[in-house]
Design a protein around this nucleic acid. Structure first.
Lengths: 341, 341
DNA sequence: CTGTTAGCGCTTTCAG
DNA sequence: CTGAAAGCGCTAACAG
């Protein structure tokens, strides 16, 4: 360890009391200009920064925000969550806060993480959780809490959500407008809220356009099972002319399956995804998809958190993040009125 | 905030002094079994966990490890670094430590991050840095420091490195053994250590097999420029029969370019990568590559850090992580003695 | 405007 | 074996 200076050292060097130093450091009004200058000079000369533990102890605030992911979301390498984390990170830095990262093991029976038990943080941003019990547990601590993109039904807490249903509706409608009448659907478990909502949007679009619903071309059950799902989808008697994949990872995995069937995208089969991860743009051909503003999801969460901390507001509001259809080249126009693309 | 219990409350409830409680909590030997039980019972009943700030202040240790990435590495979404971070995260949790994440802005003129200035951490793990001055700055703080996969020449500090040169040698040699005599090379800036070393390995393999070096088929300059690099590579007069991409991202991007030239992998052109990111396995065809044990890189760093902290050891050792050639289907055997694959 | 004092929650001598 | 006392570095009343 280093023998860092303390506020006492600065006080001695500046020939003032430590409370005066503290006042200067905290920009309190009741300090004479001259003393202020004198102190600042010493502070700068020695590059003094007050120790966080002392400050936290007194102020009962750490300036740390806990960010909790589920480990089995592969939060750190999952191209969706990592983007959300980027947004969180940037906004935290911007607000001069610090970020404590915790990955919740899937087994760990919702016991609270060390950072919350020891009060190392001023608030928790929980991302992509499926565990309502864990949320309840967190709420009991009275720490400001905000849940981003919950994958399950979480009630009675501040949330930042994705407009899943609407996005799926738009995607499906787009396919229909391009002349597709038989549209397959692949996704992870529908019990996961986000997939369930996207499925609902898909169904609604079908209905609103008067198209039949055929459950034999709905294949679900695996966040990264797109390859297998698509293979089984392609073996169905009357092959769909388009597939709506409820997440881009599954869509890109579907490419692989389609490829192995010697089918070409979009000539033989059109495909549309959801999320707009980096891979979507890089895929061959580039994937048409529903963009989710992932970084904004994160930064919004932090801003909301900051307000909760500052204003001590106990909001239970829900923020819904809009989505946007991004048209690329994985969808073919097969409508009778020709290629208007 | 919540009105958390303090050690005083526990002391009162258990009818002992707070020092006794502290002793129990810290498993000190000089406590009677009976008192110990009594205290533990109260502690458990109230689910008491001592507050970190108080503890840190007294013990001069935070149990937090700072993990610093460069923001322009896209640490959080870059499939390489995110894996390293995963390894770090897991090992930190395993050791009952906490992780404070910081992304260093590329502009920020190597000024120290808040977490180190305020001493919110007991040590720093720095990943993929290119900034020696920043390292010096960090060293001055006397915080235990360990650098993982530096992209520049960093001397005189504890490091965890990838066996870049050897990996590149193996990869190139493999291509040569498969009958390739004209092997292109694409990479990011060679001034970046890791790319430089991989280039060296490539050259050495060529030399050791008596093959000529042709700089017209060496294209570098961009971590994610594989698409453009490959396009220019394919326009060279005598097209190489194989490409060694010094990182998988560039390799996968090369796929796109090769595809656009209506060339097929591996029939028309073989390709080999480096890193073994998730995409490598998912590419069509799956990419042969040099696997880097990314999570291990991270966990090793943490273990090393933990030792530095515990033993106060001021090691300057260098750990080199071995690599492994992973054979998949992006390389064709064009040697005269036929397809022994 | 400045300094004295008290105390945040915890650990650690050191008497008893 | 137990507890009183001191103090980690800091901030916040409150006198002066």
């Amino acid at each position: 360890m280093s023998p860092s200076l303390t506020i006492n050292d600065i006080a001695r060097l500046a020939n003032v009391s430590k409370s005066t130093v503290s006042k200067v450091l905290n920009d309190k009004p009741d300090v004479g200009l001259a003393t202020k200058k004198k102190v600042m000079q010493i502070v700068e000369k020695h590059n003094f920064v007050p120790n966080a533990s002392g400050k936290s102890l007194k102020k009962r605030a750490t300036e740390n925000i806990g960010v909790i992911f589920r480990k089995d979301d592969n939060p750190l390498s999952n191209p969706f969550f990592s983007r959300v984390l980027e947004g969180i990170e940037a906004e935290i830095a911007f607000n001069d806060l610090n970020l404590m990262l915790y990955s919740m093991p899937s087994n760990k029976k919702s016991s609270l993480p060390k950072i919350v038990k020891e009060r190392k943080i001023d608030g928790v941003i929980l991302v992509g959780t499926r565990n309502e019990e864990f949320v309840r547990e967190l709420q009991k601590t009275n720490l400001p809490l905000i849940v981003v993109d919950p994958r399950a039904d979480i009630s009675d807490c501040q949330q930042v959500l994705i407009d899943n249903e609407n996005g799926a509706f738009l995607a499906t409608q787009y396919l229909i407008n391009k002349g597709h009448k038989r549209i397959g659907f692949i996704a992870g478990e529908l019990s996961e809220h986000s997939f369930g909502q996207r499925y609902t949007g898909y169904l609604k679009a079908l209905k609103s356009e008067g198209l039949p619903i055929d459950e034999t071309i709905v294949k679900t059950g695996g966040y990264e099972a797109g390859y297998e799902l698509t293979k089984s989808l392609l073996q169905v008697s009357e092959r769909p002319s388009a597939i709506f994949a409820a997440n881009d990872i599954n869509a890109v995995l579907a490419y692989k399956a389609i490829n192995e069937f010697n089918l070409s995208i979009p000539d033989d089969i059109s495909i549309i995804g959801f999320d707009d991860i980096y891979l979507a743009r890089m895929a061959i051909p580039p994937l048409t998809t529903v963009r989710v503003y992932k970084e904004e999801l994160g930064s919004l969460a932090v801003r909301s958190m900051r307000d909760m901390i500052n204003e001590g507001s106990d909001k239970r509001s829900i923020i819904i993040m809009p989505i946007k259809l991004i048209k690329r080249n994985s969808v073919k126009d097969i409508s009778t009125h020709g290629k208007l693309i």
